[in-house]
């Protein structure tokens, strides 16, 4: 469901460097669920995103505390993500990159 960008950008390097990510502070998220579809409204950007289970799970983790890509990859429920550890890590890296591009999360300094 998430628009995973194929093109890499400057911040992939940051992501690889073990940076911790968190939801952008000070703006609410509003959710609406229909089966495996989660509509998320971000009160800052005013954008609406459609996520699946994995997407919403990752986003909620980053809402609770800052996490690195590896930490998110480790905690994601195995029932939704299939593949080798490396594949899952790659998927999470791209997910984080997409969240960043959408203004949902930012690196913690």
């Amino acid at each position: 469901m998430i628009d995973v960008p194929s093109r890499s950008d400057e911040r992939v390097a940051d992501a690889a460097a073990g940076e911790r990510w968190m939801l952008v502070g000070g703006f609410e998220l509003h959710e609406r669920r229909w089966d495996d579809q989660y509509a998320v409204f971000h009160a800052g950007s005013g954008d609406t995103h459609l996520l699946n289970h994995t997407g919403i799970e990752a986003l909620r983790m980053l809402q609770r505390q800052p996490m690195t890509i590896d930490e998110v990859a480790e905690k994601l429920s195995p029932q939704w993500v299939h593949g080798s550890a490396q594949e899952v890590r790659q998927f999470v890296a791209e997910l984080i990159q997409a969240f960043d591009r959408l203004g949902l999360i930012e690196p913690v300094t």
Binding site: F27, S45, G46, E106
Partner: peptide, 19 residues
Amino acid sequence: EQNERIVHWETNRILRALR
């Protein structure tokens, strides 16, 4: 009201860019 929300978000984004 939209304008107000835009200012909150834009200033957040500007701050991030200029950090």
